[in-house]
Design a protein around this nucleic acid. Structure first.
Lengths: 209, 209
DNA sequence: GTTAGCATGTAAGGAGTTACATGATTTT
DNA sequence: AAAATCATGTAACTCCTTACATGCTAAC
């Protein structure tokens, strides 16, 4: 199991983990979050939601009564996570293997890191890093072998690719070190906003530079 | 016209532009070239080749007689570009619009830059850069707006994304400048290998470093 | 002689996009 | 009152992957 296409599912579970939402808004948030290129279409989202409903991962929940009055402005369908859905979210986040290290899937997992614990974060970060390093070795070996005969533009493309991946590896290493350094407040000064409410790990060991 | 999936077509045309080849080898070369993630499968390649045959873009050509003897080791099918194919390649390379600026399509075009002329190279590079800058503006604006409420990991992901795109913009700018500086030899010292044979532009204005 | 890799294909199906269809609410 | 945008959906289609099926050739 765990083929592709659990991408949307995981993303929806992650967003609903935070708070109930309707489809239209889910799409918007997703597009902001993963908007580096593709845009998620309704044609994918709504069928996926139906499927998740059938699977019992989410339920329709009435929208909170609007403070204005008794106007039943019901045409938005608000979805909410079930216990099963929460468990499925945890399962998917913890999952290892090829799927988790791929670009899109990694990004989604990373974006929801606050909703897992450090052990899993480390496993995902390290898995991703290992996979990138494997790629690097393969490509660099190949570059060294064919250097001479190949087109200059093709080589330049490879070179730039290698450089980008190397950068990402360094980024991952920094994050891994930060995680290992243990839970430190993101910014020591920021105590204005109360964020201690959910999950086993509010304190993200992330240093913003 | 010009939907997705011309990705494979363009790649095949580009490779065959260099020299005739059979399917198996096409796949290998393509996977090396664009191997940053996905791997092209036979299930895509062979049907695509058939389609291109029907469209008259390529023809089967007998493999060159093996120097050993008269053994007709025919089970490889060697494809060769037709005039129509060459024209289609030129058309696709010159094409502007969204398709050309997307990640995969841009990479393929770039890899075959030696087979077009500077005017087109510049158009593609600038188009790509503009598109990336648009993305940046959108995301940065959005980041500034939501900075406060959003999850730290999600923000870190965005930040890293922005940085990567900014790097790519700089890379493109360097390439554009190099192109504008006009055709200069790639390396002034390299005169050992004769490379003046094909196309309108042997001299790629690429500076390695 | 048997394994490993070369070489070509097909069928089924997954995942998502485009385009279409519809209607309510908010803004101008 | 019109236009924009919110909101939900469906049908058809595209592109591609996976898994299967088949046989040749080279190496061990």
């Amino acid at each position: 199991m765990a083929r592709r296409g659990e991408t949307i599912e995981l993303a929806v579970l992650g967003l609903l983990h935070e708070s109930p939402m309707h489809g239209y808004e889910l799409r918007k948030r997703l597009n902001l979050m993963l908007g580096w290129g593709r845009v998620l279409s309704y044609g994918s989202l709504y069928p996926a939601l139906k499927k998740m409903l059938r699977a019992g991962l989410i339920v329709e929940s009435a929208p909170p009564p609007s403070p204005g009055g008794a106007v039943s402005r019901r045409q938005r369908i608000v979805y909410q996570l079930t216990k099963t859905g929460e468990r499925e979210f945890a399962r998917l986040m913890a999952e290892v293997g090829p799927t988790a290290w791929e670009d899109d899937n990694f990004d989604i997992r990373f974006a929801f890191f606050s909703r897992t614990d450090m052990e899993i974060r480390l496993r995902v970060l390290e898995g991703r890093r290992t996979r990138l390093q494997e790629r690097l070795e393969r490509v660099q070996g190949q570059l060294a072998r064919t250097q001479k005969e190949v087109d200059q533009y093709a080589i330049e493309l490879q070179r730039h690719g290698v450089e980008s991946v190397e950068r990402e590896v360094r980024w991952l290493s920094d994050l891994i070190n930060a995680e290992r350094a243990g839970p430190q407040p993101v910014k020591p000064e920021t105590s204005g906003t109360e964020t201690s409410e959910r999950g086993p790990n509010q304190s993200a060991p992330l240093k913003n530079d």
